[in-house]
């Protein structure tokens, strides 16, 4: 009896000790199987999970294979985001139609609490961004913070419905490596467009 309870305690203490490293090693496994493809600077190293506007659960590496054009927004935004979204559409409109299937325009919400998949889907429809080459992502609070850090995007919730944030559009290769960032609103998109097309040539 004594030994029994002893064993139980041991078992549980062991369990509590390894819980973190366990999670760690599984994360390592997934990256190591991929390591021949993914470089050290690829965003596909992030293991966070996201919901798309279609309600699919994905990791960033599921986006591999296409050039990614990424921006961080939130749908209840009145000031900068409509212009950022307009910038995205403007960039998209300058890409030759036949190249669009090779590109994914990704809009990541910095307000995951409000921006549910259904809300993102509605936003996509409203803004005529519901095509195959548009993707909207809802993450977790931590996942979004981490992703913003990778993009060097700054943001802060300034009221229950408002955020202030930097206006950055980033371009990633098919393997998730950042090749270009455009900062500011309504800036000339030419360089961004040519960078996107460049990644397709490589």
């Amino acid at each position: 009896m004594k030994i029994n309870s002893y064993l139980t305690i041991l078992f549980f203490s062991l369990f509590s000790l390894i819980s973190c490293s366990e999670k760690d090693s599984s994360a390592e496994e997934t990256t190591s199987t991929e390591s021949n493809e993914i470089s050290e600077t690829s965003i596909f190293n992030l293991t966070t999970e996201w919901n798309t506007e279609e309600g699919n659960r994905i990791e960033l590496k599921d986006l591999n294979g296409k050039t990614l054009v990424v921006v961080m927004i939130y749908t209840s935004c009145q000031a900068a985001c409509p212009r950022l979204v307009a910038d995205m559409r403007n960039i998209e409109s300058q890409i030759p139609r036949n190249l669009l299937p090779e590109i994914n325009f990704v809009l990541v919400s910095i307000d995951p609490e409000t921006d549910t998949p259904s809300r993102l889907k509605a936003f996509a429809k409203e803004n005529l961004m519901d095509g195959e080459h548009w993707t909207f992502l809802q993450g977790t609070e931590e996942g979004v913070r981490e992703f913003a850090n990778v993009l060097a995007v700054k943001y802060k919730q300034i009221s229950p419905i408002d955020f202030s944030h930097s206006n950055i559009i980033s371009v990633f290769t098919q393997k998730g490596e950042m090749v270009h960032q455009q900062e500011g609103l309504g800036v000339d998109n030419k360089e961004t467009v040519s960078k996107i097309i460049e990644t397709l040539g490589s």
Partner: peptide, 14 residues
Amino acid sequence: DFNSVLISGESRKD
């Protein structure tokens, strides 16, 4: 949330 400090001046609004 160190990245919530918006004084790097990447946009006029911020």
